[in-house]
């Protein structure tokens, strides 16, 4: 049973990835712009252009190109970046930790902030405090992530300059780590100078990405909490002497979290998409920033590699959400 559902999942994942690969491959080639022309100095001969085209395989038909590329991808070869002259897999894996750290930090901010606001609003439902939560989450939602980025730069970068507005780490700092997970590896090694430098760079972009999601979580979770708080099992807990805060946290929260979890899964995927623009805004050396450069330079192999990696991330997030869901909801567990 478990093996069968795992296999079904695995094959549907492969189909999804193949679809993504086809779409990306075709799209970046239909889009106007010629990467070869950008690489050659002015005055290059027709012959030079043809040689370079042959080198990158652009002289073959689209279908041929696709299967050559796909064949290489299966063996872990994503091609060579046209602009950076380095293997795409190396470039992408080097940037991935930065984006993952940023997204996870944003998610943690959204969960903590949104969760507490939801519990607070549900605890004081029908009173001024709940109205306060509604107004602040409504405001946070109506501001998109990049605008949050600009507002945060104005507040903590200009008016009260306590945080760094660009980069991932202090450029003077000697970073000597085995992985590119500066924050997590720094934490593990107990290098607090590094961790605090990374945090002071990461906090603003993470907030910009996390605030709208926090508002969404707060609104949905508060609503589901309020529905749960009218249920008889909650009343029974009250009769057994539990105070309202305890009733919310230990009885209602796990039930209310289920619909919110679905939302978090979908929105976290959007959040990773949001890193593209927010990383650009804060000159943060992640995948998103690299994606923009790749698109501007028509670096086809790099674009394909990044998009495929984003697709893998989306699928991994969905899988995690489904697993967590069945962990929280006994109705979905099979023996």
């Amino acid at each position: 049973m478990i093996i069968r559902s795992f296999l079904a999942r695995f094959f549907s994942t492969l189909v999804t990835l193949f679809g993504v690969a086809v779409v990306v491959f075709v799209l970046v080639r239909i889009a106007p712009g010629n990467p070869i022309a950008m690489m050659l100095p002015p005055g290059a001969t027709e012959e030079d252009v043809a040689r370079l085209r042959a080198l990158y395989g652009f002289d073959k038909t689209l279908i041929e190109q696709f299967f050559v590329w796909l064949g290489n991808v299966i063996y872990g070869d994503f091609g060579t970046s046209i602009t950076m002259r380095l293997p795409v897999s190396e470039l992408v894996l080097q940037r991935l930790p930065a984006t993952l750290e940023l997204s996870i930090m944003a998610l943690v901010i959204a969960l903590v902030l949104g969760g507490s606001l939801a519990v607070f609003g549900a605890r004081f439902r029908g009173r001024a405090q709940e109205v306060g939560v509604d107004i602040s989450t409504g405001a946070a939602l109506s501001v998109p992530d990049f605008l949050w980025g600009l507002l945060l730069i104005l507040a903590f970068g200009v008016a009260w300059p306590v945080l760094h507005i660009s980069g991932r780490v202090d450029p003077h700092m000697d970073v000597d780590l085995t992985t590119n997970f500066y924050f997590f590896e720094g934490l593990l090694l107990g290098d607090f100078a590094l961790v605090s430098s990374v945090l002071s760079h990461m906090l603003m972009p993470a907030l910009a990405l996390g605030l709208p999601l926090a508002a969404m979580i707060a609104q949905l979770l508060k609503q589901s909490l309020k529905e749960q708080l009218d249920q008889d099992y909650v009343n029974l807990a009250r009769v057994r002497g539990h105070g309202e805060t305890h009733v919310i946290l230990s009885e209602a929260l796990r039930n209310a979290a289920l619909p919110t979890l679905t939302l978090i899964g979908v929105q976290f995927a959007f959040l990773i998409g949001g890193t593209v623009i927010v990383e650009r805004l804060f000159a943060y050396e992640g995948l998103g920033n690299m994606a923009i450069d790749a698109v501007i330079n028509r670096d086809l192999p790099l674009i394909q590699g990044i998009v495929l990696l984003f697709a893998v991330l989306f699928i991994a997030i969905n899988l995690t959400v489904d697993l967590t869901y069945s962990l929280l909801n006994p109705k979905l567990r099979h023996d």
Binding site: Q231, D232, Y233, V239, G241, H242, E251, R254, N255, P330
Partner: peptide, 26 residues
């Protein structure tokens, strides 16, 4: 408020109306 909750918990119990929603599903 706290004393009242404790007193009620010690001296009274509830048989609820809807058994389907009166047990925490998780």
């Amino acid at each position: 408020e706290r004393k009242r909750r404790e007193w009620v918990a010690h001296n009274a119990a509830l048989i609820p109306q809807d058994p389907l929603s009166a047990l925490n599903p998780v």
